[in-house]
Design a binder for these strands. Sequence first.
DNA 1: TTCTATTGGTAAAACAATTTACCAAAGGTT
DNA 2: AACCTTTGGTAAATTGTTTTACCAATAGAA
Lengths: 336, 336
Amino acid sequence: MPTIADIAKYAAVSPAVVSRVINRDPTLRVSDETRERVNRAVDALDFTPNAAARALRSSKSGLIAFVVHDVTNPVYGEVLRGAQMTASQSGNALLISEASNSGDRASRLVELVGGRGVDGLILQADGGISDLILARAARERVSTVLLQAELDVPAHLLRLPDKTAAAMATSHLVDLGHREIACVATEAGLSFTERRAAGWRAVLKSAHMNNGDDRIAYCPTSIENGRKTTVSLLSGAPTITAVVCFNFVTALGAVKGIRELGWRVPEDISVVTIHDLAVAEFLETPLTAVRMPLFAMGTRAVELILRRSFATGAESVIDDPKPQLIVRRSSAPPRC
Amino acid sequence: MPTIADIAKYAAVSPAVVSRVINRDPTLRVSDETRERVNRAVDALDFTPNAAARALRSSKSGLIAFVVHDVTNPVYGEVLRGAQMTASQSGNALLISEASNSGDRASRLVELVGGRGVDGLILQADGGISDLILARAARERVSTVLLQAELDVPAHLLRLPDKTAAAMATSHLVDLGHREIACVATEAGLSFTERRAAGWRAVLKSAHMNNGDDRIAYCPTSIENGRKTTVSLLSGAPTITAVVCFNFVTALGAVKGIRELGWRVPEDISVVTIHDLAVAEFLETPLTAVRMPLFAMGTRAVELILRRSFATGAESVIDDPKPQLIVRRSSAPPRC
DNA sequence: TTCTATTGGTAAAACAATTTACCAAAGGTT
DNA sequence: AACCTTTGGTAAATTGTTTTACCAATAGAA
């Protein structure tokens, strides 16, 4: 555990010079010969600067917290990977926190943010965004990025082209000839749910189709919720021939429910979902899905934080790459 | 950004007392009345101790690094969740690092470990365990847990009941009447691969069956590798009627490959895999799988680190809950 | 009354870096 | 020769907490 002072002694310079060399400060001058000596000392003693001391003095921890609802949800995987790559390329690290429940964790998060334990904060819309944390982050000037949320807070808002994606999914079904298209939405009240619902409604309206409230049902993301919701939706309106799901996981449940009711996919009911995952093509009925730029959302979120900008309420949409419809076997023309 | 000094002033005590109160040090004495005053001050000023200063003085960062090969691999999800829960329950946080490639990242990890940026290190066997990092961790007394590895290093070795699991999968096929059982293994050279292979071989041997090298093939985990490997395995030995896969992801590829060859699962070829994921039952052919105690491995890893123990080479097996065979539709008696 | 323990608290020294302010020497200008 | 500027470096302050060593006051015992 050599310190900067040991290096300084070994290289016969002062600690300040060592600091300049290892931080490659371009404005401050060190002769080539001295720099060389210091570098040799660093190698010889196998020196790594102490993270805590550095963070204390410079008030930069090099850490970014990523808060999700459920780490096992594969949809976050891609976002996480994008964030992770961008972060580590710039010498930062990513801290994962599951905010799903208990107050314990929320308070641990407050400590991290309040104590300047992290430089940035990335919050997923369904990760239980707490006002406490947002307020704290703003006060401490911890730059914050909200994913898929729509709040009036001093943070960057980053979102996906949800309306477009839902419209693409719905249009695909309309093009196939469906006239009764139901919708298994994500949790009500979340802004991305509303945007996707708007996309679904817009397409149905322009095709002069029934888009009443008896055609859409909202539920939190889980296989079981998807199943239950689909069953009650289809039981209530037997003329429905297609379903748009707002999440891959609920789509799995939807297919399960349709089969329980004695129908087949896609012969009796077509299913199209938002979010395309690798397993989609290995399912009993490979799912037609709209691929979203999740990876790009992850990279963009970290970029914003590294830029240390604090745009208040500036909302931007990730649309590169654009959402893309992947047609597989779960969608077909309606029967008869 | 109030400091401990501000609290001290507000509560009319010295900083040392504030420190004792917020750290709830039971051995050191503070009168109830003073404690109350300090707590009021903390609330009034909305104080959170500075993480960096605390880490610097106490040389504990409250951070544990979890290094995996690929964050999108769903098999890690469960391990991660177990680790995450245990960590946050004790006021620690988890840092995710993808060690898959580039030297950049490896060096960032060295900085974290070398600079005492983390208290503990959890390394997945296929996460590219670098000697550099292990040496550094040992020198800095960062307690380290190796998952599914078998190295002679000063770290805890935690592993799954791999031999048992592979034997369970293979026995299931033998019980169904299969006499020619191939094996799509994970990467050669990894210790868990060897253990699983041993389980497969043991069952075949006790059933007096062919367990030669032309029945087993090794490949890194990916859908495509699973597909290719299975195709070449089956093409070379047409009498094979069943396949044991060592990973869920390669199993997806295996099923794909079997279909490409014009065969059906399970009518022509049965497939059993190690690792059970939620999607298993939604696949075209729901996969028979051995469920492993992944969550428990995650919790155990963090517990070991929090205990700050440095057992050298002590290997322990996670066997609670025990591995469990989940029979689905991908396994059936052989044809004729 | 005097002598010890105990209680409740304080002052100041770490911890290991970054950064500001300053300084000596060398080189260039008039 | 006197003066200014640049170069390359140093000493010391700063960051916010924990912890050690110490001290005053009170209580209890002899």
